[in-house]
Design a protein around this nucleic acid. Sequence first.
DNA 1: CCAGACGTTGTT
DNA 2: GTCTGG
DNA 3: CCAGACGTTGTT
DNA 4: GTCTGG
Length: 222
Amino acid sequence: MCGRFTLTLEASELQRELGLGAIPDNWQPRYNIAPSQSILVIKDSLKRVAQWMRWGLIPSWAKNPGIGNRLINARSETLMEKPAFRRAFQTQRCLIPADGFFEWQNRSGVPSQRQPYYFHLPNHRPFMFAGLWDIWHSPDGNELLSCTIITCKANEVISFVHDRMPVILDASSAWIWLSDSPVKELQSILAPFSLPLVAQPVSRMVNKPEHDTPDVITPVAT
DNA sequence: CCAGACGTTGTT
DNA sequence: GTCTGG
DNA sequence: CCAGACGTTGTT
DNA sequence: GTCTGG
């Protein structure tokens, strides 16, 4: 699962490290990105322009946009079966830049004791989540762009905390995800990330979305 | 035919 | 919009 | 994901 | 318990 993540780089670093085009000029580094907030999304492999979208996919047919609060993730195994995701999987794939994400470890079944872990690459370099986007027309005629992060089975690093993880794409597979490849090939790149991620316990400060400072990802002892 | 759902997670 | 269930 | 709300009426 | 909002 992926219900919180980070993107701590400045625009120029993002462009250089991920090979992106233009980035919205109001971009600010983030240490605690929560569902329903605006996040950066890339949906074309040609210009690789980053644009704002709401995190939590609102299908075009939704009567109430509130459904987006529950569609923050999509299971990679069932994208073709789910009415909410099927069309987006075929024609509205996207990339979501990030440089870390949080998972909560269940201990002793007490919700207040769940221990958050921060996962990132050893050199703290950024990467891309595989995602889907959609467009929703509100009754007053406005267009609302929204997106979801695809999940897969957890790899060996993550599984001691949680059994699901976001799909992370490396530089080569990221642009394939945006291409017009056969469904079979697209599905094949939705796999657990093979490079070693660092698992770092952090304080429960991350639990509150309004905490959005470097303190959130500061390592703590468990 | 129409009506109603359409999702993931965790927990039990 | 599209699928499932009645 | 977690945190926080969850309701109606009448009166000011 | 379940839903909404961030």
